[in-house]
C-alpha cells in the first residue's frame, strides 16, 4: 500500500464517520459542524486524486461559504417545535431499509463495472482546467455566473421581511 492508498482510506473513513455524524446529531448546530468536517475530509479525498484545484474549491465553497450560510440560516430560524411522533409517519426503519437497498444496488453495479477498474491518472493541471473553462466553455461560465446572481437576488427577495405584514 502506497502512502496515497493509506491517505485515501483514512480520508474515506473520516468522511463516512462525519457523514454519519450529520445524520445522527441531535442538535442542528452539531449537524452543521459535522457537515463542515465531512467537507474537509472530502477535500482530502480530492487531494488523493491529485486535484488540488478541486480540494481548494471544496474548502472554499463547501467548507467555508455553505457551512457559514447554513449557520446563518440556523440563527435566523426559530427552534423546531417537537412534533408528536405520530406525525412522523414513515419510520426510520422503512427509510433505512429502502436506502440500504439502494446502497446495495449501487455498490454491486459499481463493483461489477469493468470501466471502473482503471487506476487513477494524474489529474489535469489547474491551468488546463482554466483554459477549458475560460475558452471552450466561457459562455457556459458566464451563464452560470448570471444564474448565481439571479439566484442570490431571488434568495434576498424570498427571505426579505414582508413589509405588508
Amino acid at each position: 500500500m502506497s502512502a496515497r492508498d493509506v491517505l485515501f482510506y483514512a480520508y474515506a473513513a473520516l468522511s463516512i464517520v462525519c457523514a454519519v455524524g450529520i445524520v445522527r446529531a441531535r442538535r442542528l448546530v452539531h449537524a452543521v459542524v459535522w457537515l463542515f468536517a465531512t467537507m474537509v475530509a472530502l477535500a482530502g479525498i480530492y487531494l488523493t486524486l491529485g486535484s488540488e484545484l478541486m480540494a481548494g474549491v471544496q474548502l472554499f465553497v463547501y467548507g467555508g461559504a455553505v457551512t457559514v450560510l447554513a449557520l446563518f440560516a440556523l440563527v435566523l430560524t426559530r427552534p423546531v417545535p417537537e412534533l408528536p411522533a405520530r406525525l412522523s409517519s414513515a419510520s426510520p426503519w422503512v427509510a433505512g431499509a429502502s436506502v440500504l437497498l439502494l446502497l446495495a444496488t449501487l455498490i454491486t453495479t459499481t463493483v461489477d463495472a469493468t470501466e471502473l477498474r482503471a487506476g487513477v491518472r494524474p489529474a489535469p493541471s489547474t491551468a488546463l482546467v482554466a483554459a477549458e473553462l475560460f475558452g471552450r466553455y466561457v459562455v457556459l461560465f458566464e451563464v452560470a455566473g448570471l444564474l448565481l446572481t439571479v439566484a442570490l437576488v431571488g434568495a434576498i427577495i424570498v427571505a426579505r421581511k414582508d413589509d405588508a405584514s
Binding site: 468522511s15 457523514a19 445524520v23 412522523s88 459499481t110
Partner: peptide
C-alpha cells in the same frame, strides 16, 4: 491499487447517508 471503483463506492456510501438524512430529517 486504488481504482475508480473505490471512489464510486465511497460516493455511494456518502450519497446514501445523505439520502437517509433527508428521509429522516425533522
Amino acid at each position: 491499487m486504488i481504482t475508480a471503483a473505490h471512489y464510486t463506492v465511497l460516493a455511494s456510501g456518502l450519497f446514501c447517508i445523505g439520502l437517509f438524512g433527508v428521509l429522516n430529517a425533522r
